[in-house]
Design a protein around this nucleic acid. Structure first.
Lengths: 188, 188
DNA sequence: GTCTATAAAGTGATAGAC
DNA sequence: GTCTATCACTTTATAGAC
């Protein structure tokens, strides 16, 4: 292969750390150290430096979460049940401190949306992609295009907000409350 | 007075900057510079250093937002209308780039909940306080205590998530979508 | 209450050898 | 592809003068 796995190891450590600690809370040294990749290879693989690394990390989060949402939605005919399955999966991490994954995309988005346009765009694309998975399912289930568009955005907001509240509360209660109100939200 | 206004100026600059740029994205030097307060007075007024400053900043955000929510709720008999008034106010900042206030509490919470217990607790208290304002109004309007408790947490999550999405999208659409689904959420 | 000076460590980034 | 060494800068925090 043209790339060894150094690039991959760096990117996966960066993704994990950015999600947990944020952009400014994570140093390049820490990324290198946790990745176990050779020290000198960072700027070889990521000539754009920290910003490029963060953009690619956001793309990793985007795809990882998109897949999770899609898997959950596929398992049920009713969109509400699919979303609840996804929320259930998210809530698991708060049972055990070690499992906590942080706030995917949201932390980086909040830190950098006003400071780096390319990074903001990457975060925005992630939210758009997740919304489109919800949207498609809702339309398939008989929602109007308009309602599906609104609802999918609201679901994105609730879930990011719910993770944030669960992180702060150190328990999954907020995510579970959200889960229980999903059917009411989609009933229209 | 026993304190001049240096303390106040430092704290208000810190509050603004932490909310916009986060804990690690904001340096003590920048806070001093923007506050216009004398350079040497920071550790005199805040012997606990950056962490103490952030905790007090979170308390400022807590009170500022609590007041805003309370004002909005007082203006209407219907809780849904009060919440929509608050969302309308939040959405204004995205009309003009200069007015953007960032993500109150949420950014600091996401960055530090896993790293500083006292800071996490301060953020948690803020969310609890906001929720109790919603809760009280909902119970007054005839909701069951149980439903009011759930709904107020969900509203907190939606709003923090909505600000985050609006920040990332650079427009108020997410907050407005949330506003339009509030009545459905409370109908029970 | 405020100042300067500075310590001690960390940051992102680059150059040049191998 | 990877290494080391290093630059230029910023960070939080402290000590001691005024």
């Amino acid at each position: 292969m043209s790339y060894g796995d150094s690039r991959e190891k760096i990117l996966s450590a960066a993704t994990r750390l950015f999600q947990l600690q944020g952009y400014y809370g994570t140093g390049l040294n820490q990324i290198i150290k946790e990745s176990g990749a050779p020290k000198g290879s960072l700027y070889y693989h990521f000539p754009g430096g920290k910003e490029q690394l963060a953009i690619e990390a956001v793309n990793e989060m985007k795809e990882y979460i998109r897949q999770k949402i899609a898997d959950c939605m596929e398992g049920y005919a009713d969109p509400a049940e699919g979303i609840q399955a996804f929320l259930k999966e998210l809530s698991c991490q708060f049972s055990c401190t070690e499992d906590i994954e942080g706030l995917p995309v949201g932390l980086l988005a909040a830190e950098t949306s006003l400071k780096s346009e390319p990074l903001r765009e990457a975060c925005h694309e992630a939210y758009k992609e997740w919304a489109s998975v919800y949207e498609e399912k809702l339309v398939q289930a008989g929602c109007s295009e308009e309602h599906a568009k609104e609802a999918s955005t609201v679901i994105n907001a609730m879930i990011e907000g719910g993770i944030l509240l669960s992180l702060t509360a150190k328990n999954s209660t907020p995510l579970l409350y959200i889960s229980s109100c999903i059917p009411d939200l989609l009933k229209r």
